[in-house]
Design a protein around this nucleic acid. Sequence first.
RNA 1: CGGGGUGUGGCCCAGUUGGUCUAAGGCGUCUGGUUUGGGACCAGAAGAUCGAGAGUUCGAAUCUCUCCACCCCGACCA
Length: 478
Amino acid sequence: MAISEKRTITKQEVDFPAWYQDVVREAELAESSEVRGCGIVRPYGLKIWELIKAELSRRLEDDGVENVYFPVFVPLENLEAEKDHVEGFAPELAVVTHAGGEELTNKLAIRPTSEAAMYKTYAKWIQSYKDLPLRLNQWANVVRWEKRPRAFLRWSEFLWQEGHTAFANEDEARSEVIKMLDIYKDVYDFMAIPTFTGRKSENEKFAGAVMTTTVEVMAKDGKAIQGATSHYLGTNFAKVFGVNYLGADGSSHLAHQNSWGLSWRSVGALVMVHGDDNGLRLPPNIAPIQIVIVPIYKDEVSRQQVLDFCQTIKNKFGISYRIKIDERDGQTPGFKFNYWEVRGVPVRLEVGLKELAENKVTLFRRDNGIKEVVAVEDLDKSLPSIMSDIHQSLYQQAVDFSKKNINRIESWDEIKEQTGWFEASWSEDPETEKQLKEKYGIVSRVLLREKENEAPKNKKCFISGQEAKHDWLFAKCY
RNA sequence: CGGGGUGUGGCCCAGUUGGUCUAAGGCGUCUGGUUUGGGACCAGAAGAUCGAGAGUUCGAAUCUCUCCACCCCGACCA
């Protein structure tokens, strides 16, 4: 039977969003729930998130950030305190109007983000300059009733971490914004995902922020995914919630605040960056199973011999790697090969009587589909280099793809020919960005950090012809 | 919120000019057997208030009305 007849995953080139949904389902990452826009994340999908989380957690802890937890409910009036903030989030708020069998006089919003939930308390905690900096993080669920949900990338409820920090002055705050941006970049590197980091435009920045920085990722259909953000809030929230402190000079000052977050959207980005027509491809760092062993046998005697051999291998390497032996009876090897390929397991060891006799294994790499026979005693040495090679090759493929899909353009007329991202010299006038969005559904994604202090290649804005300020990246986005 | 679409066993879906529908088929599940190096095969079995309610009719998955839900494409966002 032809393989295509067995295919349950739409090809990427046929319909990318359908491909994405198919992979999310077939790899058992997640499925939709009874509640509109809310997903059920299955163990395999959640484990990937937990591995990303573990890496980020470690980085935050190393940097001296402490974890905290605030309630999921926020008094609605708190949210309404900051004008830009409420305007940004009001349309997507879920509000609790009844509880305990009664209508609530003071309505409670389910947090869409926690600035408004936390900063009143920060005001209490911060009295003196000696209380600064205050650097806290929470791992939490938040709810944003988005119009257009999409698995992992934009569910109504999602898991994330949100850091909320307060500093004595602008310089300290701003330097942390960049530090967090770098940590996010590193976490994406950990997932073998290349990123584009820098600043957001006025239109695209966080509601209530002075400046938003972003980690942008390119999906395999040429759209952009906002992978994480780090905001300088200035004193906007401090003014409203009274986050001020008594300085060494004896007078009161407003604290300068930041917030920064990364969500399980990163799991969606992972799928869209590395996945292929056969399903998921996971870099070893965040693969729930790094090595799957598929035993191949004929009868009860060989079954036991082969399984014993598999167990020996697992015992030997299970300390260094997350290994699973697929012991299921009744499934053919071919079925199991496909099963684990869809799930993106980076390395598969095929072990049968042939291998047993020679003390070897057949090693298959998910990233390139190549099989080779390796002696068991060589695995010690070769596995680490194979794993890092898989990581490298996935990263490089993504880098090559990104490069190929960013064009330089000079004029409005060239926009219609663009399928991926493009770079252009821009005036940064919000009105021109609105035109671009209306006409083409394209927005500015990021002003790369290295372009911040560079003169634009073209002196004139590609939209308005006004004076251009910088070279920005533009794209359609998820 | 605009546009489009769909609701039929766990999943995919046929049927929708009313009557052989006592609802077909495939996948999956279970039992037994044969198999097992790229998605195995045979035999048998279980499993459905046809999204909900009301109506028309001798008779409704099928027609009418009302409601509900979800999905997809757009504008918004981690």
